[in-house]
């Protein structure tokens, strides 16, 4: 019997591509150790090290680590219980360069909608 309770990691490709396309410095994170919620931009990053180590500005515990090898990278977020990332409003679509959006639909976000 096939276990349908999870999907394989391929499904992460789209969501992660969208997530990491944004400017993470505009995100906020919650420290797993002390609970403080702070903008990622406010983390204390130690870069004179074998990797980047970002620490909570309140309690100095590690929230994020990023190690970059020439052909690989490791991202460790165990010290952050969440990252809150600003996102485009759900349901909005980018402008349709081919002009194929159906006429009569929601045109507020469509090309030419502003004039």
């Amino acid at each position: 019997m096939t276990d349908m309770s999870y999907l394989d990691g391929n499904m992460l490709d789209g969501p992660l591509r969208e997530l990491f396309a944004v400017d993470l410095s505009a995100a906020t994170g919650r420290c797993q150790s002390c609970g403080m919620v702070a903008p990622v931009a406010r983390l204390h990053v130690y870069s004179h090290a074998p990797g980047l180590v970002a620490r909570c500005p309140a309690c100095t515990e590690v929230m994020l680590r990023l190690v970059r090898a020439p052909d690989r990278a490791w991202l460790d977020l165990r010290g952050a219980t969440f990252l809150q990332v600003p996102m485009p409003l759900e349901g909005r679509r980018p402008a349709d360069p081919a002009g194929t959006r159906p006429v009569g639909g929601d045109r507020r976000g469509g090309r030419g909608g502003t004039g």
Partner: peptide, 19 residues
């Protein structure tokens, strides 16, 4: 600390065991 973030468990420089 670093071994859980991609670095080599042993780290012999003469065998260039970085990651």
């Amino acid at each position: 600390f670093w071994e859980t973030a991609g670095y080599h468990d042993y780290g012999d420089p003469w065998r260039e065991q970085r990651y």
